[in-house]
Write a protein that binds this DNA or RNA. Sequence first.
DNA 1: CCAATAGTGTCTATGAGACACTATCAA
DNA 2: TTGATAGTGTCTCATAGACACTATTGG
Lengths: 221, 221
Amino acid sequence: MAWVAADIVALTLRDGVLSVALVKRKPRAARGRWALPGGFLLPGESAEQAAYRELAEEGGLGERDVRLEQLGTYSDPRRDVEHEKRVISIAYLALAANLPEPVAGTDAADASWVPVDQAVGKALAFDHTRILEDGIERARSKLEYSTLATSFLDETFTISELRSVYEAVWGVRLDAANFHRKVTSTDGFVEATGEERRGRGRPAKLFRAGSATSLNPPITR
Amino acid sequence: MAWVAADIVALTLRDGVLSVALVKRKPRAARGRWALPGGFLLPGESAEQAAYRELAEEGGLGERDVRLEQLGTYSDPRRDVEHEKRVISIAYLALAANLPEPVAGTDAADASWVPVDQAVGKALAFDHTRILEDGIERARSKLEYSTLATSFLDETFTISELRSVYEAVWGVRLDAANFHRKVTSTDGFVEATGEERRGRGRPAKLFRAGSATSLNPPITR
DNA sequence: CCAATAGTGTCTATGAGACACTATCAA
DNA sequence: TTGATAGTGTCTCATAGACACTATTGG
Protein backbone atom coordinates (compact mmCIF):
# COMPACT_ATOMS: atom_id res chain seq x y z
CA MET A 1 0.00 0.00 0.00
CA ALA A 2 1.32 3.36 -0.91
CA TRP A 3 0.27 6.90 -1.54
CA VAL A 4 0.46 7.83 -5.19
CA ALA A 5 1.33 11.33 -6.35
CA ALA A 6 1.47 12.91 -9.79
CA ASP A 7 4.32 15.41 -10.15
CA ILE A 8 4.87 17.62 -13.14
CA VAL A 9 7.94 18.94 -14.94
CA ALA A 10 6.24 21.89 -16.65
CA LEU A 11 8.54 23.55 -19.16
CA THR A 12 8.08 26.73 -21.12
CA LEU A 13 10.22 29.38 -22.77
CA ARG A 14 10.41 32.71 -20.96
CA ASP A 15 12.30 35.33 -22.98
CA GLY A 16 14.05 32.59 -24.85
CA VAL A 17 15.13 30.74 -21.70
CA LEU A 18 13.92 27.23 -20.94
CA SER A 19 12.20 27.46 -17.57
CA VAL A 20 10.42 25.12 -15.20
CA ALA A 21 7.52 25.73 -12.81
CA LEU A 22 8.49 25.34 -9.16
CA VAL A 23 6.41 25.75 -6.02
CA LYS A 24 7.42 26.42 -2.43
CA ARG A 25 5.80 23.66 -0.40
CA LYS A 26 3.24 24.31 2.30
CA PRO A 27 2.37 20.72 3.38
CA ARG A 28 4.19 19.35 6.39
CA ALA A 29 6.53 17.12 4.41
CA ALA A 30 9.42 19.21 3.08
CA ARG A 31 7.59 22.38 4.05
CA GLY A 32 9.21 25.54 2.73
CA ARG A 33 11.35 23.77 0.14
CA TRP A 34 11.11 24.26 -3.61
CA ALA A 35 9.56 21.34 -5.44
CA LEU A 36 7.84 20.35 -8.63
CA PRO A 37 4.11 21.06 -8.67
CA GLY A 38 2.00 18.00 -8.02
CA GLY A 39 -0.16 16.22 -5.54
CA PHE A 40 -1.85 13.00 -4.56
CA LEU A 41 -4.32 11.20 -6.78
CA LEU A 42 -7.91 11.56 -5.72
CA PRO A 43 -10.09 8.45 -5.52
CA GLY A 44 -11.40 7.55 -8.95
CA GLU A 45 -8.84 9.72 -10.71
CA SER A 46 -6.08 8.51 -13.04
CA ALA A 47 -2.57 9.90 -12.73
CA GLU A 48 -3.00 11.78 -15.98
CA GLN A 49 -6.21 13.37 -14.75
CA ALA A 50 -4.48 14.33 -11.53
CA ALA A 51 -1.66 15.95 -13.50
CA TYR A 52 -4.13 17.96 -15.57
CA ARG A 53 -5.95 19.00 -12.43
CA GLU A 54 -2.75 20.21 -10.80
CA LEU A 55 -1.84 22.13 -13.94
CA ALA A 56 -5.24 23.80 -13.90
CA GLU A 57 -5.01 24.65 -10.20
CA GLU A 58 -1.48 25.99 -10.25
CA GLY A 59 -1.17 27.32 -13.75
CA GLY A 60 -4.68 27.96 -15.00
CA LEU A 61 -4.09 25.68 -17.96
CA GLY A 62 -6.67 23.67 -19.86
CA GLU A 63 -5.98 20.45 -21.71
CA ARG A 64 -5.83 22.30 -24.99
CA ASP A 65 -2.99 24.58 -23.92
CA VAL A 66 -0.52 21.97 -22.90
CA ARG A 67 0.98 18.73 -24.08
CA LEU A 68 1.34 16.15 -21.34
CA GLU A 69 3.42 13.02 -21.50
CA GLN A 70 4.29 10.45 -18.88
CA LEU A 71 7.93 10.63 -17.86
CA GLY A 72 8.35 7.76 -15.43
CA THR A 73 7.56 6.54 -11.97
CA TYR A 74 9.82 6.97 -8.97
CA SER A 75 9.35 4.32 -6.33
CA ASP A 76 12.57 4.11 -4.32
CA PRO A 77 11.39 3.42 -0.74
CA ARG A 78 13.84 6.06 0.54
CA ARG A 79 12.80 8.76 -1.92
CA ASP A 80 10.49 10.43 0.54
CA VAL A 81 11.51 9.80 4.10
CA GLU A 82 9.65 12.83 5.39
CA HIS A 83 6.26 11.26 4.84
CA GLU A 84 5.01 8.73 7.35
CA LYS A 85 3.64 6.45 4.66
CA ARG A 86 5.36 5.32 1.52
CA VAL A 87 4.91 7.64 -1.47
CA ILE A 88 5.53 6.86 -5.10
CA SER A 89 5.46 9.54 -7.75
CA ILE A 90 4.25 9.29 -11.32
CA ALA A 91 6.04 12.10 -13.13
CA TYR A 92 4.72 13.94 -16.17
CA LEU A 93 6.36 16.24 -18.66
CA ALA A 94 4.23 19.24 -19.66
CA LEU A 95 5.14 21.64 -22.44
CA ALA A 96 3.31 24.82 -23.19
CA ALA A 97 3.63 28.26 -24.72
CA ASN A 98 3.50 31.55 -22.87
CA LEU A 99 2.45 30.03 -19.61
CA PRO A 100 1.18 32.62 -17.16
CA GLU A 101 2.99 33.08 -13.86
CA PRO A 102 1.98 30.02 -11.81
CA VAL A 103 -0.29 30.69 -8.85
CA ALA A 104 0.29 29.41 -5.36
CA GLY A 105 -2.57 27.01 -4.73
CA THR A 106 -3.64 25.36 -1.51
CA ASP A 107 -0.47 23.28 -1.31
CA ALA A 108 2.00 26.02 -2.17
CA ALA A 109 3.19 29.15 -0.39
CA ASP A 110 4.77 30.47 -3.56
CA ALA A 111 5.18 29.50 -7.19
CA SER A 112 7.25 30.75 -10.09
CA TRP A 113 9.10 30.01 -13.30
CA VAL A 114 12.77 29.27 -12.83
CA PRO A 115 15.36 28.90 -15.62
CA VAL A 116 16.26 25.22 -15.72
CA ASP A 117 19.96 25.88 -15.19
CA GLN A 118 19.17 27.53 -11.87
CA ALA A 119 16.52 24.98 -10.96
CA VAL A 120 18.83 21.97 -11.20
CA GLY A 121 21.22 23.80 -8.89
CA LYS A 122 18.57 24.34 -6.19
CA ALA A 123 18.16 21.67 -3.53
CA LEU A 124 14.65 20.59 -4.46
CA ALA A 125 12.47 18.51 -2.15
CA PHE A 126 12.55 14.70 -2.26
CA ASP A 127 14.08 13.36 -5.51
CA HIS A 128 12.70 16.19 -7.60
CA THR A 129 16.09 17.25 -8.93
CA ARG A 130 16.47 13.83 -10.46
CA ILE A 131 12.96 13.97 -11.92
CA LEU A 132 13.64 17.42 -13.32
CA GLU A 133 16.86 16.25 -14.98
CA ASP A 134 15.05 13.31 -16.51
CA GLY A 135 12.36 15.65 -17.81
CA ILE A 136 14.83 18.05 -19.40
CA GLU A 137 16.67 15.21 -21.05
CA ARG A 138 13.40 13.76 -22.34
CA ALA A 139 12.40 17.12 -23.81
CA ARG A 140 15.80 17.51 -25.46
CA SER A 141 15.78 14.13 -27.08
CA LYS A 142 12.14 14.29 -28.15
CA LEU A 143 12.77 17.48 -30.09
CA GLU A 144 14.91 15.45 -32.44
CA TYR A 145 12.43 12.94 -33.69
CA SER A 146 9.03 14.41 -32.85
CA THR A 147 7.13 17.59 -33.53
CA LEU A 148 7.12 18.41 -29.82
CA ALA A 149 8.86 21.74 -30.41
CA THR A 150 5.66 23.33 -31.67
CA SER A 151 4.13 22.77 -28.20
CA PHE A 152 6.34 25.58 -26.92
CA LEU A 153 4.81 28.05 -29.35
CA ASP A 154 1.50 29.78 -29.91
CA GLU A 155 -0.93 28.43 -32.46
CA THR A 156 0.81 30.35 -35.23
CA PHE A 157 4.51 31.00 -35.36
CA THR A 158 7.38 31.80 -37.67
CA ILE A 159 10.16 29.44 -38.68
CA SER A 160 12.60 31.64 -36.73
CA GLU A 161 10.55 31.17 -33.58
CA LEU A 162 10.54 27.42 -34.11
CA ARG A 163 14.28 27.52 -34.60
CA SER A 164 14.73 29.50 -31.41
CA VAL A 165 12.89 26.74 -29.51
CA TYR A 166 15.50 24.26 -30.66
CA GLU A 167 18.30 26.67 -29.89
CA ALA A 168 16.98 27.40 -26.38
CA VAL A 169 16.29 23.80 -25.43
CA TRP A 170 19.49 22.41 -26.89
CA GLY A 171 21.69 25.40 -26.14
CA VAL A 172 23.17 25.46 -29.64
CA ARG A 173 23.05 27.69 -32.73
CA LEU A 174 21.45 26.25 -35.85
CA ASP A 175 21.98 27.41 -39.41
CA ALA A 176 18.89 29.46 -40.22
CA ALA A 177 18.95 28.62 -43.92
CA ASN A 178 19.24 24.86 -43.57
CA PHE A 179 16.75 24.78 -40.71
CA HIS A 180 14.20 26.63 -42.77
CA ARG A 181 14.55 24.28 -45.70
CA LYS A 182 14.45 21.18 -43.56
CA VAL A 183 11.38 22.14 -41.56
CA THR A 184 9.33 23.36 -44.50
CA SER A 185 10.21 20.31 -46.59
CA THR A 186 9.25 17.79 -43.91
CA ASP A 187 5.69 16.70 -44.64
CA GLY A 188 3.22 17.49 -41.88
CA PHE A 189 5.60 19.31 -39.54
CA VAL A 190 4.31 22.82 -40.26
CA GLU A 191 1.73 24.23 -42.64
CA ALA A 192 1.60 27.78 -43.94
CA THR A 193 -1.32 29.94 -42.87
CA GLY A 194 -0.84 32.48 -45.66
CA GLU A 195 -0.41 35.25 -43.10
CA GLU A 196 2.73 37.22 -42.38
CA ARG A 197 4.24 38.91 -39.39
CA ARG A 198 6.14 42.17 -39.75
CA GLY A 199 9.02 43.35 -37.62
CA ARG A 200 12.54 44.54 -38.35
CA GLY A 201 13.58 43.03 -41.64
CA ARG A 202 11.73 41.02 -44.21
CA PRO A 203 8.27 39.89 -43.03
CA ALA A 204 8.13 36.27 -41.92
CA LYS A 205 5.47 33.85 -43.11
CA LEU A 206 3.34 32.36 -40.38
CA PHE A 207 2.82 28.63 -39.89
CA ARG A 208 0.82 26.37 -37.65
CA ALA A 209 1.65 22.87 -36.41
CA GLY A 210 0.93 20.16 -38.96
CA SER A 211 -0.60 16.76 -38.40
CA ALA A 212 2.62 14.77 -38.12
CA THR A 213 3.80 13.77 -34.64
CA SER A 214 7.04 11.99 -35.50
CA LEU A 215 9.84 13.36 -37.63
CA ASN A 216 11.58 11.29 -40.22
CA PRO A 217 14.33 12.15 -40.80
CA PRO A 218 15.00 13.76 -37.42
CA ILE A 219 16.36 17.23 -36.73
CA THR A 220 19.94 16.64 -35.66
CA ARG A 221 21.34 18.23 -32.56
CA MET B 1 -3.92 4.88 -1.19
CA ALA B 2 -3.40 2.16 -3.70
CA TRP B 3 -1.74 -1.16 -4.17
CA VAL B 4 1.27 -0.97 -6.44
CA ALA B 5 2.28 -3.81 -8.73
CA ALA B 6 5.25 -4.30 -11.02
CA ASP B 7 4.35 -6.13 -14.24
CA ILE B 8 6.83 -7.27 -16.83
CA VAL B 9 6.77 -7.52 -20.60
CA ALA B 10 9.57 -10.08 -20.93
CA LEU B 11 10.58 -10.58 -24.54
CA THR B 12 12.93 -13.09 -26.07
CA LEU B 13 13.50 -14.80 -29.40
CA ARG B 14 12.42 -18.44 -29.57
CA ASP B 15 13.42 -20.05 -32.88
CA GLY B 16 13.55 -16.64 -34.47
CA VAL B 17 10.09 -15.65 -33.25
CA LEU B 18 9.59 -12.73 -30.88
CA SER B 19 7.85 -14.17 -27.83
CA VAL B 20 6.56 -12.90 -24.52
CA ALA B 21 6.32 -14.61 -21.13
CA LEU B 22 2.75 -15.14 -19.97
CA VAL B 23 1.42 -16.77 -16.81
CA LYS B 24 -1.96 -18.27 -16.01
CA ARG B 25 -3.13 -16.50 -12.88
CA LYS B 26 -3.81 -18.28 -9.61
CA PRO B 27 -4.77 -15.32 -7.34
CA ARG B 28 -8.45 -14.61 -6.92
CA ALA B 29 -8.50 -11.57 -9.18
CA ALA B 30 -8.70 -12.71 -12.81
CA ARG B 31 -7.97 -16.30 -11.72
CA GLY B 32 -7.31 -18.65 -14.60
CA ARG B 33 -6.66 -15.90 -17.15
CA TRP B 34 -3.42 -15.32 -18.99
CA ALA B 35 -1.52 -12.28 -17.81
CA LEU B 36 1.91 -10.69 -17.75
CA PRO B 37 4.15 -11.93 -14.93
CA GLY B 38 4.30 -9.54 -12.02
CA GLY B 39 3.20 -8.89 -8.50
CA PHE B 40 2.87 -6.42 -5.70
CA LEU B 41 5.78 -4.46 -4.31
CA LEU B 42 6.97 -5.66 -0.93
CA PRO B 43 7.53 -3.12 1.82
CA GLY B 44 10.91 -1.46 1.41
CA GLU B 45 11.28 -2.62 -2.17
CA SER B 46 11.44 -0.37 -5.24
CA ALA B 47 9.44 -1.24 -8.34
CA GLU B 48 12.62 -2.16 -10.17
CA GLN B 49 13.66 -4.51 -7.39
CA ALA B 50 10.22 -6.07 -7.46
CA ALA B 51 10.50 -6.59 -11.21
CA TYR B 52 13.88 -8.29 -10.83
CA ARG B 53 12.49 -10.46 -8.04
CA GLU B 54 9.58 -11.57 -10.17
CA LEU B 55 11.92 -12.34 -13.05
CA ALA B 56 14.05 -14.45 -10.75
CA GLU B 57 11.04 -16.27 -9.31
CA GLU B 58 9.33 -17.00 -12.59
CA GLY B 59 12.23 -17.20 -14.98
CA GLY B 60 15.29 -18.01 -12.94
CA LEU B 61 17.03 -14.90 -14.25
CA GLY B 62 19.71 -12.85 -12.55
CA GLU B 63 20.32 -9.16 -13.14
CA ARG B 64 23.19 -9.93 -15.45
CA ASP B 65 21.10 -11.95 -17.88
CA VAL B 66 18.45 -9.40 -18.61
CA ARG B 67 18.09 -5.76 -19.50
CA LEU B 68 15.26 -4.07 -17.67
CA GLU B 69 13.72 -0.75 -18.55
CA GLN B 70 10.70 1.07 -17.20
CA LEU B 71 7.86 1.17 -19.70
CA GLY B 72 5.21 3.24 -17.99
CA THR B 73 2.64 3.28 -15.24
CA TYR B 74 -0.99 2.37 -15.70
CA SER B 75 -3.29 4.04 -13.25
CA ASP B 76 -6.77 4.16 -14.78
CA PRO B 77 -9.13 3.60 -11.81
CA ARG B 78 -11.14 1.14 -13.92
CA ARG B 79 -8.12 -0.89 -15.10
CA ASP B 80 -8.58 -3.53 -12.45
CA VAL B 81 -12.17 -3.77 -11.29
CA GLU B 82 -11.72 -7.28 -9.98
CA HIS B 83 -9.61 -6.17 -7.06
CA GLU B 84 -11.34 -4.71 -4.06
CA LYS B 85 -8.73 -2.00 -3.65
CA ARG B 86 -7.32 0.23 -6.31
CA VAL B 87 -4.26 -1.18 -8.11
CA ILE B 88 -1.79 0.70 -10.23
CA SER B 89 0.84 -1.09 -12.27
CA ILE B 90 4.39 -0.01 -13.03
CA ALA B 91 5.30 -1.87 -16.20
CA TYR B 92 8.81 -2.94 -17.20
CA LEU B 93 10.28 -4.15 -20.43
CA ALA B 94 12.75 -7.03 -20.06
CA LEU B 95 14.87 -8.36 -22.89
CA ALA B 96 17.00 -11.45 -22.68
CA ALA B 97 18.58 -14.21 -24.69
CA ASN B 98 17.67 -17.85 -24.60
CA LEU B 99 15.37 -17.53 -21.67
CA PRO B 100 14.47 -20.87 -20.14
CA GLU B 101 10.85 -21.96 -20.08
CA PRO B 102 9.27 -19.80 -17.36
CA VAL B 103 8.24 -21.63 -14.22
CA ALA B 104 4.88 -21.35 -12.56
CA GLY B 105 5.57 -19.70 -9.22
CA THR B 106 3.30 -19.25 -6.26
CA ASP B 107 1.05 -16.84 -8.12
CA ALA B 108 0.80 -18.78 -11.37
CA ALA B 109 -0.83 -22.07 -12.31
CA ASP B 110 1.07 -22.18 -15.58
CA ALA B 111 3.64 -20.15 -17.48
CA SER B 112 5.05 -20.19 -20.98
CA TRP B 113 6.52 -18.28 -23.90
CA VAL B 114 3.95 -17.15 -26.44
CA PRO B 115 4.71 -15.60 -29.84
CA VAL B 116 3.73 -11.96 -29.57
CA ASP B 117 1.33 -12.17 -32.51
CA GLN B 118 -0.66 -14.80 -30.65
CA ALA B 119 -0.33 -13.05 -27.31
CA VAL B 120 -1.90 -9.79 -28.45
CA GLY B 121 -4.85 -11.82 -29.76
CA LYS B 122 -5.48 -13.49 -26.41
CA ALA B 123 -7.83 -11.81 -23.95
CA LEU B 124 -5.27 -11.06 -21.25
CA ALA B 125 -6.24 -10.07 -17.72
CA PHE B 126 -6.79 -6.43 -16.76
CA ASP B 127 -5.21 -4.01 -19.26
CA HIS B 128 -2.29 -6.30 -19.99
CA THR B 129 -2.95 -6.40 -23.72
CA ARG B 130 -2.44 -2.66 -23.83
CA ILE B 131 0.74 -2.92 -21.75
CA LEU B 132 2.02 -5.68 -24.00
CA GLU B 133 1.39 -3.60 -27.11
CA ASP B 134 3.20 -0.65 -25.59
CA GLY B 135 6.13 -2.90 -24.71
CA ILE B 136 6.41 -4.34 -28.20
CA GLU B 137 6.28 -0.90 -29.73
CA ARG B 138 8.95 0.33 -27.32
CA ALA B 139 11.22 -2.57 -28.20
CA ARG B 140 10.71 -1.96 -31.91
CA SER B 141 11.52 1.70 -31.75
CA LYS B 142 14.46 1.32 -29.39
CA LEU B 143 16.19 -1.06 -31.79
CA GLU B 144 16.57 1.86 -34.14
CA TYR B 145 18.58 4.22 -32.04
CA SER B 146 20.04 2.06 -29.27
CA THR B 147 22.16 -1.04 -28.97
CA LEU B 148 19.26 -2.88 -27.32
CA ALA B 149 19.28 -5.59 -29.98
CA THR B 150 22.35 -7.22 -28.45
CA SER B 151 20.29 -7.91 -25.31
CA PHE B 152 18.45 -10.61 -27.25
CA LEU B 153 21.69 -12.47 -27.94
CA ASP B 154 24.27 -14.44 -26.01
CA GLU B 155 27.48 -12.81 -24.93
CA THR B 156 29.06 -13.56 -28.29
CA PHE B 157 27.18 -13.60 -31.56
CA THR B 158 27.60 -13.26 -35.28
CA ILE B 159 26.49 -10.31 -37.39
CA SER B 160 23.89 -12.56 -38.99
CA GLU B 161 22.41 -13.34 -35.62
CA LEU B 162 22.25 -9.66 -34.82
CA ARG B 163 20.58 -9.03 -38.14
CA SER B 164 18.03 -11.75 -37.46
CA VAL B 165 17.07 -9.95 -34.22
CA TYR B 166 16.15 -6.88 -36.23
CA GLU B 167 14.34 -8.97 -38.80
CA ALA B 168 12.34 -10.86 -36.17
CA VAL B 169 11.38 -7.84 -34.10
CA TRP B 170 10.56 -5.61 -37.05
CA GLY B 171 9.19 -8.32 -39.32
CA VAL B 172 11.22 -7.14 -42.30
CA ARG B 173 14.15 -8.38 -44.40
CA LEU B 174 17.37 -6.40 -44.27
CA ASP B 175 20.16 -6.41 -46.83
CA ALA B 176 22.88 -8.58 -45.29
CA ALA B 177 25.72 -6.72 -46.98
CA ASN B 178 24.68 -3.21 -45.97
CA PHE B 179 23.73 -4.32 -42.47
CA HIS B 180 27.14 -5.88 -41.96
CA ARG B 181 28.94 -2.77 -43.07
CA LYS B 182 26.78 -0.46 -41.03
CA VAL B 183 27.03 -2.41 -37.80
CA THR B 184 30.76 -3.02 -37.96
CA SER B 185 31.50 0.59 -38.87
CA THR B 186 29.44 2.06 -36.01
CA ASP B 187 31.85 2.77 -33.18
CA GLY B 188 31.11 0.88 -29.99
CA PHE B 189 28.17 -1.16 -31.26
CA VAL B 190 30.02 -4.48 -31.55
CA GLU B 191 33.62 -5.52 -31.05
CA ALA B 192 35.30 -8.54 -32.60
CA THR B 193 36.41 -11.32 -30.28
CA GLY B 194 38.80 -12.86 -32.80
CA GLU B 195 36.90 -16.15 -32.63
CA GLU B 196 34.87 -17.74 -35.38
CA ARG B 197 31.86 -19.96 -35.57
CA ARG B 198 31.63 -22.69 -38.19
CA GLY B 199 28.48 -23.99 -39.79
CA ARG B 200 27.26 -24.38 -43.34
CA GLY B 201 29.12 -21.84 -45.42
CA ARG B 202 31.93 -19.48 -44.66
CA PRO B 203 32.75 -19.27 -40.95
CA ALA B 204 31.35 -16.17 -39.25
CA LYS B 205 33.41 -13.92 -37.03
CA LEU B 206 32.15 -13.62 -33.50
CA PHE B 207 31.45 -10.32 -31.78
CA ARG B 208 30.39 -9.12 -28.39
CA ALA B 209 28.37 -6.04 -27.45
CA GLY B 210 30.43 -2.84 -27.39
CA SER B 211 30.31 -0.03 -24.92
CA ALA B 212 27.95 2.27 -26.83
CA THR B 213 24.32 2.39 -25.78
CA SER B 214 22.91 4.81 -28.33
CA LEU B 215 23.29 4.55 -32.08
CA ASN B 216 24.11 7.52 -34.20
CA PRO B 217 23.18 7.29 -37.01
CA PRO B 218 20.31 4.88 -36.27
CA ILE B 219 19.52 1.62 -38.01
CA THR B 220 16.54 2.41 -40.20
CA ARG B 221 13.47 0.24 -40.24
C1' DC C 1 20.97 54.51 -47.98
C1' DC C 2 21.97 50.70 -44.05
C1' DA C 3 20.97 47.13 -40.79
C1' DA C 4 18.27 43.40 -39.87
C1' DT C 5 15.75 39.46 -40.66
C1' DA C 6 13.66 35.92 -44.11
C1' DG C 7 14.40 32.87 -47.38
C1' DT C 8 16.87 30.50 -51.86
C1' DG C 9 20.85 28.54 -54.59
C1' DT C 10 24.54 25.73 -54.89
C1' DC C 11 28.44 22.97 -53.83
C1' DT C 12 30.48 19.16 -51.20
C1' DA C 13 30.91 15.34 -48.32
C1' DT C 14 28.68 11.54 -46.32
C1' DG C 15 25.94 7.73 -46.06
C1' DA C 16 22.00 4.52 -47.33
C1' DG C 17 20.56 1.13 -50.41
C1' DA C 18 20.92 -1.87 -54.60
C1' DC C 19 23.31 -5.42 -56.12
C1' DA C 20 27.44 -7.64 -58.30
C1' DC C 21 31.12 -9.84 -56.67
C1' DT C 22 34.60 -12.55 -53.80
C1' DA C 23 35.68 -15.81 -49.73
C1' DT C 24 35.34 -20.04 -47.26
C1' DC C 25 33.21 -23.55 -45.50
C1' DA C 26 30.23 -28.61 -45.46
C1' DA C 27 28.53 -32.22 -47.88
C1' DT D 1 31.57 -29.43 -57.44
C1' DT D 2 27.55 -27.29 -55.50
C1' DG D 3 25.03 -24.79 -52.32
C1' DA D 4 25.09 -22.06 -48.44
C1' DT D 5 26.54 -18.44 -45.70
C1' DA D 6 29.96 -14.41 -44.76
C1' DG D 7 31.76 -10.47 -46.18
C1' DT D 8 33.66 -6.57 -49.77
C1' DG D 9 33.41 -3.36 -53.85
C1' DT D 10 31.15 -0.09 -56.22
C1' DC D 11 27.65 2.74 -58.12
C1' DT D 12 23.74 5.89 -57.51
C1' DC D 13 20.79 8.82 -55.17
C1' DA D 14 19.38 11.61 -51.25
C1' DT D 15 20.44 14.73 -47.85
C1' DA D 16 23.01 17.49 -44.20
C1' DG D 17 25.79 21.31 -43.69
C1' DA D 18 28.60 25.34 -45.21
C1' DC D 19 28.00 29.50 -46.93
C1' DA D 20 27.17 32.89 -50.75
C1' DC D 21 23.46 35.08 -52.31
C1' DT D 22 18.79 37.40 -53.00
C1' DA D 23 14.37 39.49 -50.92
C1' DT D 24 11.88 42.73 -48.19
C1' DT D 25 11.15 45.30 -44.58
C1' DG D 26 11.98 49.58 -40.81
C1' DG D 27 14.56 53.37 -39.67
